[in-house]
């Protein structure tokens, strides 16, 4: 176990390094003077010089990269060009709405999708299966923002059950938070549910064809026990994997959903920074989201050892 653990953690380092190089080069490879792009058409030479200096654009490329990395490793993600605040502070201000919505979404998705997938596999080729698969393909195909607007139209405009947009922190007014969070979470969950339900079904169908399931039946076990005790745990690894890789979809979805529902989270911060060409913020946000993605998948990798005794190193 410790060896496996160390190996997985070490394997994450080159991935993050590639991300860092890519993010770093993204700005440097842009045609034209990055400083001019950032400052816009109206910038004075003095402003340009200030930006170059802030970004260290006057040093050789590798020196720039190393000093940038060095600062990041010390937790210094630079300063926003627009608000002049440290990037860390901006992120701290905006991260809670995103974290709350994401947590609700993941919980909701797993609670809804896994039973859906199990049911579909168990009742393979019946109407139950067909309904689940139809929901799943719809979830894949209808873009997040279209689902968002459909839900707003239905529940906020027509039925008036919830407010159209906005966000409240759960600490202050939990009811207000919940009623505003439910639509964004459902919106975000749609594709995640589709993904997890589909993988649960596929993985379970595979496992139900395995010899040991036949053995379990030959032992005279009840179907329910065959399903839950023998099949489900064996089917879990691919489902965990897809929860991890689906996290990337979730991050992309957050950006869109926060725009649709006007939630002041990291997604909005990202879009705003990109349009304002606030480079240090963009770099930090891509690094941060990639880091979270890698960390989540690392945790999931490590959880395999709990699910499958064969995975030990």
């Amino acid at each position: 176990m410790p060896v496996y653990f160390v190996r997985r953690v070490l394997a994450a380092i080159p991935v993050m390094l590639v991300v860092a190089v890519f993010v770093f080069l993204l700005l440097r490879l842009t045609p034209g003077d990055p400083a001019a792009i950032i400052a816009g058409d109206m910038a004075t030479p003095a402003q340009l010089e200030r930006i170059r200096d802030t970004l260290g654009l006057n040093d050789p490329l590798h020196v720039q990269f190393l000093s940038w990395m060095g600062r990041i490793l010390q937790g210094d993600f630079g300063t926003s060009l627009i608000s002049n605040k440290p990037v860390i502070e901006l992120v701290e201000d905006r991260m809670w709405p995103t974290i709350w919505i994401a947590l609700i979404t993941i919980t909701l998705s797993v609670i809804i999708a896994v039973p859906m997938g199990v049911l579909a596999a168990w009742r393979h080729r019946t109407w139950v299966d067909h309904i689940v698969m139809t929901f799943s393909v719809l979830g894949f195909s209808i873009p997040v923002f279209v689902i968002g607007y459909l839900l707003i139209k239905l529940f906020a405009i027509d039925l008036r059950w919830v407010p159209v947009q906005g966000y409240k922190a759960p600490s202050g007014d939990f009811g207000g938070f919940a009623i505003r969070a439910v639509l964004p979470a459902l919106t975000l969950a749609s594709i995640y549910i589709a993904l997890i339900a589909r993988m649960t079904r596929a993985s379970l169908l595979d496992v139900l064809n395995e010899d040991y399931v036949r053995t379990a039946r030959a032992k005279g076990l009840a179907e329910r026990r065959v399903l839950f005790r023998h099949a489900l745990r064996n089917a879990a690894v691919p489902v965990m994997t897809v929860i991890g890789t689906g996290f990337a979809l979730l991050i992309s979805g957050v950006v869109v959903t926060e725009s649709v529902f006007n939630i002041p989270g990291l997604g909005r911060l990202t879009v705003d920074s990109i349009f304002a060409r606030d480079y240090p913020v963009i770099q930090a946000l891509i690094l941060l989201t990639s880091g979270i993605y890698v960390a989540v998948n690392l945790l999931i990798d490590l959880s395999y050892t709990l699910l499958d005794p064969r995975i030990r190193y």
């Binding site: 395995e210 040991y212 379990a216 064996n234 499958d308």
Partner: peptide, 10 residues
Amino acid sequence: EPMTALNPVM
């Protein structure tokens, strides 16, 4: 196949 006939995670 006694390998595949036994549940690998039990």
